[in-house]
Design a binder for these strands. Structure first.
Lengths: 149, 149
DNA sequence: TATTGTTATACTCTATAACTATA
DNA sequence: TATAGTTATAGAGTATAACAATA
């Protein structure tokens, strides 16, 4: 169905439409991982930031810390991460990727990258890069040299 | 916390980060509406496309048709929409906005627009328009004159 | 007294199937 | 026999609070 005109003026509508398509494209791939899409995000953040506490990971990913417990249970059971006690604070558990976790993550990233290209395929190549760049800058708050209001 | 570098290369990560912020910003506003954020989307689509069947609305918004039933129950109870029988096919119910529904929608849209501006505020003004445009083109499949692969 | 992580509970959302009334 | 809409049920996802261990 053709999208009604006034709906298209909404940033929210466009955002959710794109995200819905992204989810549909990646669903099969990410559901194979322990913890599903969120399990993937945890692997990604754990590797990228190095060993961090569960709470830090949860806050970074916008998850509740109780959800992080369940996710790590699954990931640890599958041998993808370890929970190592922090010598400096024995309340804290640092999350580390196992070799198998790193391999699983690398494989998933590669396949995801292909899917992302498929998602952006309708746009001309230069616009794909522009969109990637703008979304990253918005997500990270990294505004380059034009960061003043 | 600073975002780890390799995470930022992911389109999926950027997309979900922006959507999460959008949701947090709009949550209070949209939860006041019957049906919450999805109730708003239904109002928007119902007005934009004119009276349409429940099934057409559901498919357009990516919702299950059973969910549409619940949402319309809420919206109708609040007096924002009507379910009118279709003379041409008595199985079908066409969804129409009431005057009150149109007023409620207009009010919500205005406030949402302000929130969208807040979301995009970190970007320089020209980039905001670029991002809006690219997302819309990607969401609608409207590629302008550069639509060939 | 506050914080990290865990567990238990309840609530919401979603998916599925069964049902009706029309076609 | 197929479709639009409804209803009922179960499953997953999420939020909340209470708890143990440590600071």
């Amino acid at each position: 169905m053709r999208a009604p005109k006034s709906v298209e003026q909404d940033l929210g509508w466009a955002l959710f439409t794109v995200v819905r398509r992204y989810r549909r494209l990646t669903d099969g791939l990410l559901n194979d991982l322990p913890g599903g899409p969120r399990g993937y995000q945890v692997l990604l953040a754990a590797q990228a930031g190095g060993p961090r506490s569960q709470l830090a990971l949860a806050q970074y990913l916008g998850l509740d810390r109780t959800v992080m417990t369940y996710l790590l249970d699954e990931l640890e059971r599958a041998g993808l991460v370890r929970r190592a006690p922090d010598p400096a604070d024995r309340r804290v558990r640092r999350v580390e990727l196992s070799d198998q976790g790193a391999a699983t993550l690398a494989d998933a990233r590669g396949r995801l990258r292909g899917i992302e290209d498929e998602l952006l395929e309708p746009l001309p190549v230069p616009d794909r890069h522009t969109l990637r760049g703008l979304l990253h800058r918005l997500a990270t708050g990294d505004l380059g040299d034009a960061g003043q209001l």
